[in-house]
Design a protein around this nucleic acid. Structure first.
Lengths: 146, 146
DNA sequence: TGCAGTTAAATTGTATAAAACTTAATTTAT
DNA sequence: ATAAATTAAGTTTTATACAATTTAACTGCA
């Protein structure tokens, strides 16, 4: 029997510790974890709206706005208000922002390998379970809104 | 194949969303999630040190000190400096702090049930994998310290 | 058409949490 | 007995999360 409390604490702790581990590496580039994941979204698809980044990461604009301004200050992204729709802000990678990708990936490689060698850990299943739970929680949250 | 990036994002997102869901309920009691887990530790074992709470939750004193002061201000806990060892602070539940337990558990029950009914989600396995990953990450972190 | 109400997107302000650093007390080794 | 190392908690600074606000765009209806 697994309680909500046990599960949430396991998620919370594991998430935080893994992120701390990643941040050890990321700090070479002056990136926090949320900043890094934001960059990964842009590396996958450049020039998207704040809202779209938020959807993919489940972060709201109140978190993203200051984060993106920070990335802009570091000259990794450019923020540009939409021409047709003045409410929106398009985020584009700068050249330094683009070339950061391979450097960061390179730096994370050792960790990547260690992770894959954890005995008895079925990463694929774990990832799958997390996605399943994530979707369920999302659905729950949305249903409560109405 | 699961990348470090995928896994960490799944953990980060799921953790955050589940906690948001919990906080919907917890806010009735004016508790944030970290405050709530701290209380759960005390409900399991009353009168322990800040350091011990930190070990169980993987939180450091920088997070716990202000949090515990908040709980003290709400009259849920009492903080008392150790007599033998002046460096330590013992945390004890107050009567309101103790009686909060059943109320909070009651309020979380509906969520608890919903969670257990998510189809295809093997909570037991998920929890087990998370514990395994958590331990590995912990070991890794400690090995890097030296 | 045009305007009132509604929805959408981002921002700002405030509170909370986390990381890095500091201070103080205790322990250990010599 | 004392200096060095360790341990515990607290402080400071930065980042993130959340709520409330602002501005823009859309919708429907007179």
């Amino acid at each position: 029997m697994v309680s909500l409390h046990q599960l949430s604490l396991a998620l919370y702790s594991t998430s935080r510790l893994l992120i701390q581990l990643l941040q050890n590496t990321l700090k070479e580039f002056n990136l926090t974890y949320p900043q890094y994941v934001t960059m990964t979204v842009l590396w996958e698809e450049d020039s998207i709206l704040v809202k779209e980044i938020g959807e993919r990461l489940h972060l709201d604009s109140g978190t993203l706005t200051p984060l993106l301004k920070k990335l802009e200050a570091m000259n990794y992204v450019k923020r540009q208000r939409g021409e047709n729709d003045e409410r929106t802000v398009h985020i584009e990678l700068t050249y330094p922002g683009k070339s950061l990708q391979s450097k960061v990936q390179q730096a994370l490689l050792p960790l990547e390998e260690i992770l894959n060698e954890i005995p008895g850990l079925e990463l694929y299943d774990l990832n799958h379970s997390l996605q399943n739970l994530l979707e369920s929680v999302e659905t729950l949250k949305n249903s409560k809104k109405e």
